[in-house]
Computed example of a mutant assay.
Amino acid sequence: MTESSIPAPPVVRRAVPDDGPALGELDRATWSTLHAVQPRPQPPYAPFFDDGHPPHDILVAEAVGAAGRPEPAGYIRVVPPTPLACNAHVRQIQGLAVAHWARGRGVGRALIRAACAAARAEGANRMTLRVLGHNAPARALYEAEGFTVEGVLPGEFFLNGRYVDDVMMGRPLAP
């Protein structure tokens, strides 16, 4: 591989309202029972952003796509897990998607790192998430980024004819 053929690392930024259509497309294109517990989205599609999912909660990774220009390669949604003041020090990843064409290019890792940095900047000192037990690639990525299993709800979901565990993971956000 020549230096010029090495893909540039993704640029991670806060989402803006105009990202909605592209992120909605990305979300639908990456839907899988490997990570989704909701049924496959069907037309007419709901907007990606709504009152409960504003652009501020989303970080977008841009990478150079097939057309040779930056385009959304993935996103991560990070929110306070509850509205309680006693839980304000925690942020939770409630969605991570990487476009098929961008996988293996460090997009997921860049999103997780940017999300942790943004949460720290907001005063959080802990990050949590939930991942399906059978999602080995996501679990490996989270573990590589310092998350550990903190609990398991065995057989919490019934997907594709089998019971699947819901795995809770977390990590401190110390600098």
Rank of each mutant, 00 (worst) to 15 (best):
Q94C: 10
G155N: 15
Q42M: 08
A85M: 07
E25N: 15
D57L: 05
A114F: 00
E145C: 15
V98H: 12
P83Q: 09
T82I: 05
Y142D: 12
T33V: 13
P47A: 08
R162P: 01
P80D: 09
A124Y: 08
G65A: 02
A15I: 07
P175A: 10
P21L: 06
L84E: 04
W101M: 07
P43C: 09
N125K: 05
F49S: 00
P172N: 09
R109K: 15
L111D: 05
M169N: 08
V60Q: 01
R171N: 10
P81M: 02
G123T: 07
D27P: 03
W31Y: 12
M1P: 15
G104F: 14
R139W: 04
V78S: 09
A117L: 06
A85H: 08
G108Q: 03
H53A: 10
R139S: 06
L132Y: 01
G106K: 09
M169P: 04
F157A: 15
P9V: 05
A8K: 12
S32D: 02
V16C: 05
C116T: 04
P80G: 03
Y163G: 11
G74P: 02
G133N: 14
Q92S: 14
A121R: 04
A99C: 07
P44W: 14
A140T: 09
E143M: 13
A174C: 13
D27E: 15
A22W: 09
E150P: 01
P17D: 13
A144S: 15
I58L: 11
A99N: 05
P21I: 07
I112M: 07
V167K: 05
P39I: 01
M169S: 08
Q42S: 13
P137V: 00
R171A: 12
T128R: 05
T148M: 10
L153M: 11
G123F: 01
G155L: 14
S5R: 06
R40T: 01
P80R: 08
V64P: 05
W31S: 07
A46Q: 14
E122S: 12
L26F: 01
P39L: 03
V12D: 05
P41D: 08
A102Q: 08
N160Q: 12
L129H: 00
G68T: 07
G24I: 03
P72S: 00
L84P: 04
G161L: 06
A121Q: 07
L26Q: 11
L23N: 01
G104E: 10
